[in-house]
Amino acid sequence: MTPPDAQDNRWSDLGRPPLNAASLRRAMVREGGLWTSLEVVPATGSTNTDLAARADDLAEGAVLVAEEQSAGRGRLDRRWSAPARSGLFFSVLLKPADVPVERWGWLPLLTGVAVATGLSRAAGIDTALKWPNDLLVTVGDEERKAGGILAERAWSGSGGGVVVGVGLNVTLREDELPVPTAGSLALAGAPTTDRDPLLRAVLRSLEQWYGDWRAAGGDPRASRLQETYAAGCATLGRRVRAELPGDRSLVGEAVAVDGEGRLVLATGAGVQEPVGAGDIVHLRAAG
């Protein structure tokens, strides 16, 4: 007989063990490194909301991880949730004071590159990036969304900062998918779904990419961010439709990501038009 509190027990699903917070801190928080603190909480509404509320009191490099999110947020305030310990749900606090604010828009794209790079090393699986902030995996012969990224400005007494949140489906099963177009590392056939090494790999990759970007003054070309993002972006080379505010849509071929991180569409009229992240309501393959 199943105990009445089984769903609340951290060991109720042995296939989804809890993260080892102490081990993660020992591995990631070190003198001279980016990550200055790492906290794992059993559950919360949104790690982005929680970390942004504490930005004044935290140093750059604070990491907040939740075993479960009940009100995770994506772009345009879309809401989503997932079973406890079925994924990686975390946010980091970045304060790139030495980078011009106009280049901070690259941070969600930088995070996408870092997550994809870290997963390719640790999970042994190929991923792709859908502009501006989705992580794609292949399940069967279908391209599905396994993760998303949300960057939000957080003002503090010591200056501005950015909270970057990552949500990644790791062991989500077919019957647990919120929508048929969702996926997970497990469904994509990842050889490993142990969340501890996956999180360590992603954070190490993010530290490296962020450090290179800052060293280049936020220049996406000098830091190789722009070319690396383009190389891993599944949107480029495709005919897409960008649905914009005011019931306007734009159809064309995605031909480039420009120096400001915008997606450049070549329309049927022979015009190349950049689309900014703030203007995109939904981006999908057309036809």
Rank of each mutant, 00 (worst) to 15 (best):
K95D: 06
A269R: 12
V101H: 09
V170N: 05
T267W: 09
G276H: 04
R238C: 13
L76H: 15
A154H: 08
T171C: 13
A22T: 12
H282R: 12
V240Y: 06
L199D: 04
S81T: 13
F89T: 04
T127E: 05
Q226Y: 02
L185M: 07
R238L: 14
A21C: 06
A216D: 13
G259W: 03
V29G: 08
E174S: 14
D175Y: 07
A286Q: 13
A114V: 08
A215D: 15
S205Q: 03
C233L: 07
H282M: 01
R214E: 15
L119A: 12
F90Y: 14
R78I: 05
R221M: 05
D98R: 11
T49Y: 12
G167T: 04
G167C: 09
S81E: 13
S120A: 15
R204H: 10
L265A: 09
E67T: 00
E67V: 00
D5G: 11
E68Q: 15
Y210A: 06
R78K: 15
L283N: 00
P3H: 14
G167L: 09
A27I: 01
A6C: 08
I125W: 07
R214I: 10
V63M: 07
A116P: 08
T235I: 03
L172Q: 06
V101R: 11
E152Q: 14
V257W: 03
L168F: 05
V137L: 03
R239T: 14
M1C: 12
A128D: 13
E176M: 02
D279N: 03
R25I: 00
L250H: 14
V251R: 14
L177N: 10
G74T: 04
P274N: 04
G148M: 04
G211K: 01
R85H: 10
